[in-house]
């Protein structure tokens, strides 16, 4: 089990971070009941005001990130060193920071939407807790230190530490999305497509053989 003191530290840090930019939530400003419904109905449409995102009708041919990126340079450095532990250079493809994963995570956690704002709290909480645990600023860590930090995080998550598992899970997921939707990542997975052709030929014979069909 995780050490009590450490878990407590993690939670205290989380509280300190609750001042992070939050999405507008207009909670349940219910109306006075609809004509034939028995009691107060729930109002749908109040929770998201849509005033800070890319809007419902953005220019799809010229995608733009419309929100300010909010991570400080030191936070991005810290994210880069952790992301490179999650997705290192391995002879087949480069490490996470080489394909822009820290920029992607900055774009994600700076976005005004509810899911991204939730992830923002998880990521910033996690970074703060890791820093507290290491008792040193994360952005000063070298690769070996980052490696052992993630190893400790992994051990605690594996032992059932909830905040650790949540951070590990979300941070890993954001690394995977950022990495494998990049041109390098798409090629690395072997996705072949976006090739206009008069016919769809279906899987080639060697694939069918492997599938046992």
């Amino acid at each position: 089990m995780p050490d009590r003191r450490e878990t407590l530290t993690w939670l205290l840090r989380a509280l300190a971070l609750s001042a992070a930019p939050a999405v507008h939530i207009d909670s349940a400003s219910a109306s006075q009941g609809c004509a034939a419904a028995p009691a107060k109905p729930d109002r749908i449409g109040a929770a998201w005001r849509g005033d800070r995102g890319y809007g419902r009708d953005p220019d799809l041919l010229h995608p733009q990130v419309t929100w300010a990126l909010t991570l400080a340079a030191q936070q991005k450095t810290a994210i880069a060193s952790l992301a490179d532990v999650f997705l290192p250079e391995d002879g087949s493809s480069p490490c996470a920071s080489a394909v822009g994963v820290p920029d992607f995570i900055d774009e994600w956690v700076s976005a005004p939407y509810p899911q991204q704002q939730q992830d923002r709290v998880v990521v910033l909480e996690g970074l703060a807790a890791l820093e507290c645990d290491a008792n040193a600023p994360l952005h000063t860590f070298d690769a070996t230190q980052a490696q052992s930090l993630v190893a400790r995080l992994h051990a605690r998550a594996a032992e059932g530490g909830q905040p650790e598992a949540r951070f590990f899970g979300r941070f890993r997921q954001l690394c995977l999305i950022g990495y494998y939707t990049s041109p390098v990542g798409v090629a690395e997975l072997g996705y072949v497509g976006y090739q206009p052709s008069a016919r769809f030929e279906g899987p080639p014979p060697e694939v069918l053989a492997k599938l046992g069909i």
């Binding site: 609809c34 028995p38 729930d42 998201w48 005001r49 849509g50 995102g53 419902r56 953005p58 799809l60």
Partner: peptide, 27 residues
């Protein structure tokens, strides 16, 4: 996202599950 529930490139423009100008209620 709430702005584009099926993704940025989805064919629906000016639509979605939550339209602040067009609220509805549920029992």
């Amino acid at each position: 996202t709430p702005d584009k529930p099926f993704g940025f490139y989805d064919g629906t423009v000016d639509g979605g599950w939550i339209l602040p100008e067009e609220p509805y209620a549920t029992a």
